[in-house]
Amino acid sequence: MSGKWKRQVSFTVNGASQSLEADVRDTLLDTLRDRVGLTGPKKGCDEGVCGACSILLDGRAVCSCSMLAVEAHGSNVVTIEGLGKDGEDRLQLSFIAHDAMQCGFCTPGQIIAARSFLDSPGADLTAEGIKNALSGNICRCGCYANIIEAVLAAARSGGGEP
């Protein structure tokens, strides 16, 4: 493969600088999982529907499967692994306390989307608001009722700041 399909990508991941040479075709998801070694973001559908691959890009949740790694150049990326060390993040603790997960495969994406929602100015901190914010995160185990409770509880206890 010739060099012009490769680009140097420099970005911050979970607070640490990363610089790597990426094939322009690689998604950010594959790059995070295969090259950076962060397997928290999951590949559930690879088509931007299930939300399991969600990461924070400059503070907002996006599907890392639906962007190229090269698009992240110069950005600040946070994955589930970067949210709270040892589960100190209130949102993560709230998910655990409310049994808001079964198989756990969608959980990293759910928590990232919830974090982005709680951090957005003027977020509608009601069950309806949470449903709107998390409608892009599919949970096949059907934990939705507990997820709503978990995010509501985190919101009540101060937006889930660590």
């Binding site: 999982r33 962060l38 397997t39 928290g40 973001p41 999951k42 590949k43 994955t79 589930i80 692994e81 949210l83 709270g84 040892d86 589960g87 993560q92 603790l93 998910f95 655990i96 049994d99 997960m101 756990g104 495969f105 959980t107 990293p108 928590i111």
Partner: peptide
């Protein structure tokens, strides 16, 4: 049990190996 691993992204599923 295992909830912490699932909630923090360290749980290793087959494709993560």
């Amino acid at each position: 049990m295992d909830a912490l691993e699932r909630a923090t992204g360290v749980a290793r599923y087959a494709a993560d190996w």
